[in-house]
């Protein structure tokens, strides 16, 4: 499987993602500049965390107009996996690939800590290796992670089982404790917690690894090797 890690000016979790895919998951991965226009040959697209364009105007707002974004939208239209983590989630919101928006954390502080989550939905291409309602811990590191949407949108997210991760102990004021959501089709996931920072037990936590394994398992199911 071939993963693309999109690199925007100000991305700073791109190397962690690259390492998680190449060295831990053991799959192919390439960096793709925000200036590129196509994603030919890739099976999954990862938008890393960081502070693209210095978070100017709003987190993710400038990056959502990057050259690569139309290609990411086309990629998502094809039903292929797109994962946005932290700033990547903010970019997916700003670009309209996911509903809602981020506000400043309710406590106004930048929060950097491990946080307990519940897997609300394990039948997605991103969470099939988790148990339903499984409790996991993943690191968060953000100032603008206070998820907001109107009540109609929230009702739709709930009705369509689009809420994938919820905070157990809401650290940032997010509506309905939302930590991660997918689009209606289920192939675009945005989440504030960082699974790529939790892929090795030796480094303290590997709760995030199964997210990447889930993507791989799903891909293999749809691309059964014929010999």
């Amino acid at each position: 499987m071939n993963f693309a890690v999109i690199v925007f000016p100000g991305s700073n979790c791109d190397t962690d993602l690259f390492h998680a895919i190449k060295d831990v998951l053991g799959e192919k991965v390439e960096y793709v500049s925000h200036q590129e226009h196509d994603l030919e040959g890739f099976d999954a697209v990862l938008l890393p965390g960081g502070f693209s364009y210095g978070d100017y105007l709003r987190s993710g707002s400038i990056a959502s107009f990057a050259n690569i974004m139309p290609a990411i939208k086309d990629f998502a239209e094809l039903g292929k996996p797109v994962l946005g983590i932290c700033n990547g989630f903010q970019i997916l919101l700003e670009s309209g690939l996911l509903p809602g928006a981020m506000k400043r954390n309710a406590g106004l502080k930048f929060i950097c800590e491990s946080t307990p989550l519940t897997v609300e939905h394990n039948e997605t291409m991103f969470t099939n290796e988790y148990e339903m309602d499984e409790r996991i811990n993943l690191p968060i590191a953000h100032a603008d992670g206070n998820y907001e949407c109107d009540d109609d949108t929230l009702a739709r997210l709930e009705a369509n089982h689009q809420i994938v991760f919820k905070y157990d102990d809401n650290p940032n004021g997010s509506k309905a404790n939302i930590a991660g959501i997918v689009n209606e089709r289920g192939n675009v996931l945005g989440m504030m917690p960082h699974p790529e920072r939790a892929v090795e037990a030796l480094l303290g936590n590997d709760d995030g690894l199964r997210l990447f394994q889930s993507i791989l398992v799903n891909w293999r199911e749809h691309h059964a090797v014929t010999s």
Binding site: R58, F65, E94, A101, K103, E148, D150
Partner: peptide, 8 residues
């Protein structure tokens, strides 16, 4: 399109 986010 850019200066405000109409969602919030």
């Amino acid at each position: 399109q850019l200066l405000a986010n109409p969602v919030i």
